[in-house]
Computed example of a mutant assay.
Amino acid sequence: MTNENQNTINEEMAEQTQEANQKVELTEENTAETVFAEEGTTGESTVQDLLKEIEGLKSKLDEADNRYLRLQADFDNFRRRSRLDQEASEKYRAQKLITDLLPALDNFERAMKVEVDNEQAKSLLQGMDMIYRGIVDALKKEGVEPIETVEKEFNPHLHQAVMQESNENYGSNIIIEEFQKGYLLKDRVIRASMVKVNQ
């Protein structure tokens, strides 16, 4: 192919490209004119529609923000409740075992109140007393304390009144006698004391 032919082809292609660009420009101008003409006829309503749409989007955004804040508050509450539950579970972990041991502790106390004159029985009671003290010490380490009763004021949260008596030696509402020992596990009543109260 000669240089002249090549130049001719290049010129033709350049002309065709220029014509195509002109057509594209004309099409864009016509489209823009059409859009501007349409906006000119409905410009105000288009602006109002856009403002309405903006307001709608703002309200949706506010609603989403509020929902997010509520979810965050719910999650914080859930985390706090879970932490408190876990702390309570750890604090009172031995409650079931202690509650099951209390009747055995009562039996030990009753057995040690028996009067004996036999040396063998006395040594047996001494051994039982050692076992009893060991159990009581172990319970103290877990936070178990007996509830004070005799000569203390009756407290319905700590004591269960099973009898009343009129006794001049005691003031009104004062505990005269304890029938069954009550216990606290840290700050929780695991068994109320059964008592006789002065009227």
Rank of each mutant, 00 (worst) to 15 (best):
2 T>I: 03
3 N>H: 06
3 N>G: 10
10 N>H: 04
14 A>H: 04
14 A>I: 07
14 A>Y: 04
15 E>F: 09
15 E>I: 13
15 E>A: 14
19 E>C: 00
19 E>W: 06
23 K>M: 06
23 K>R: 14
25 E>A: 15
27 T>H: 07
28 E>D: 11
29 E>C: 04
30 N>P: 00
30 N>D: 11
31 T>K: 13
32 A>S: 12
33 E>S: 12
33 E>C: 01
35 V>I: 15
38 E>K: 13
41 T>N: 10
45 S>Q: 15
46 T>Q: 12
50 L>P: 00
51 L>C: 01
52 K>W: 02
53 E>M: 06
53 E>D: 11
56 G>S: 13
58 K>P: 00
61 L>S: 07
66 N>L: 07
68 Y>E: 04
68 Y>C: 00
68 Y>I: 03
69 L>V: 05
69 L>S: 11
73 A>P: 00
73 A>G: 03
74 D>P: 00
77 N>T: 09
81 R>D: 10
82 S>W: 01
86 Q>R: 09
88 A>S: 12
90 E>C: 02
91 K>N: 08
92 Y>Q: 06
92 Y>P: 01
95 Q>H: 02
96 K>E: 14
100 D>S: 14
100 D>A: 15
102 L>C: 04
108 F>P: 01
109 E>T: 05
110 R>G: 00
113 K>G: 02
114 V>H: 03
114 V>K: 10
114 V>C: 01
116 V>G: 06
117 D>K: 11
117 D>F: 03
118 N>P: 01
118 N>H: 02
120 Q>L: 05
121 A>S: 10
122 K>S: 06
122 K>R: 13
123 S>C: 00
124 L>S: 07
126 Q>G: 11
130 M>P: 00
130 M>K: 14
135 I>Q: 01
138 A>C: 01
140 K>R: 13
140 K>G: 01
144 V>G: 03
146 P>M: 01
148 E>W: 00
150 V>G: 02
151 E>L: 02
152 K>H: 14
155 N>S: 08
156 P>N: 09
157 H>T: 08
158 L>P: 04
160 Q>D: 14
160 Q>T: 07
161 A>Q: 06
161 A>K: 10
161 A>I: 05
162 V>A: 09
163 M>Y: 13
163 M>P: 00
165 E>M: 09
168 E>Q: 12
170 Y>F: 15
171 G>M: 02
172 S>W: 00
172 S>P: 06
174 I>G: 03
174 I>H: 06
176 I>R: 09
178 E>D: 06
182 G>E: 11
182 G>T: 09
182 G>M: 10
186 K>D: 14
187 D>G: 07
187 D>C: 08
188 R>P: 05
188 R>K: 15
189 V>N: 12
194 M>C: 05
196 K>P: 02
197 V>N: 04
198 N>R: 06
